[in-house]
Amino acid sequence: MINTFVTLFWRKRRLAQAAERLEDRGFRVIRLEPGQWNTERDMHRAMAAALDFPDYYGHNLDALNDCLGEVACYGGYDDAPEGTGLVFTDYDRFATTCPRAAQVVLDIIADQARQAVVLRRRLICLVQSNDPQIRFEPVGAMPVMWNSDEWADGNRG
């Protein structure tokens, strides 16, 4: 997770271990299940509920960027600790049904994470995929990389 704000995982066990390490270090870890999102609207509902977005949240990608900025840079709307970890499971399913939104969500997270660093805050996103060959375009001008234990293609087979 040291090279990027968005890190891919194939094995759910490794994802769980990484999330536990974040919790042990004082991060507020928010677990979401994109595998259950069939539409972009489903994603917005889940993100708004999990991140306690305000009632005026617009349920679009611009609004996601704005409200996630509050979470990343200022601790959100509920007095979050110094860092936030977003944990996505089964992201490949959402990426298949809503490819553009799936890419943009990761890009927004990476961009907000980079801005948060300037304010000495941390936002990290752990993304689990059942597709060991999944690839994303760079997000926040950085590649979406596999975790160090699974970076080699042979370690995901």
Rank of each mutant, 00 (worst) to 15 (best):
T96Q: 02
L68T: 05
A46L: 10
V105T: 12
P99R: 00
R41D: 09
G76H: 01
P54N: 03
R45V: 02
P81Y: 07
R41L: 11
A49S: 12
C67R: 08
G69K: 01
G83R: 12
V71E: 08
D92E: 04
D42F: 06
A50F: 07
C67W: 07
L64W: 15
G76N: 08
A95G: 09
G83K: 10
Y57M: 07
D62A: 07
C98A: 12
L86R: 08
A101Y: 10
L86V: 06
L106A: 12
N65T: 02
Y91K: 10
L51I: 03
N65P: 01
A72I: 09
A80T: 14
G76P: 10
R41Y: 15
R41Q: 09
Q103K: 03
G76Y: 03
H44T: 00
P34W: 02
A102M: 00
V104Q: 10
A46V: 05
L51E: 13
A46E: 13
H59K: 05
G58E: 04
P99E: 05
Y56R: 09
D107L: 14
A63N: 03
H59Y: 15
G58L: 04
E40K: 03
I108Q: 11
A72L: 09
F53W: 02
D92W: 10
R100Q: 15
D42P: 04
H44E: 05
D107G: 11
T96H: 04
T89H: 02
A50E: 12
G35R: 01
G35D: 04
L68F: 14
C73W: 03
T39F: 12
L68I: 02
Y77E: 06
G83M: 13
P54M: 10
C73T: 06
F94Q: 14
N38L: 08
R100W: 07
V105G: 15
A50N: 03
L51Q: 10
T39G: 02
D92I: 01
V104E: 12
G69M: 00
G58V: 01
N65G: 13
Y56T: 06
A49H: 04
D42M: 00
L61G: 07
F53V: 13
P99K: 01
Y77K: 11
D79A: 05
D66I: 11
D78T: 11
A50C: 11
T96K: 01
T39D: 02
A50Y: 15
V87M: 13
M47D: 00
A63D: 07
C67M: 03
Y56P: 07
G69L: 02
R93L: 05
G76K: 09
V105F: 15
A50M: 08
R100L: 12
R45N: 00
G58R: 09
C73Y: 06
G83I: 11
D62C: 07
F94W: 12
T89W: 08
R100F: 06
E70H: 06
A80K: 10
D78A: 12
L106D: 14
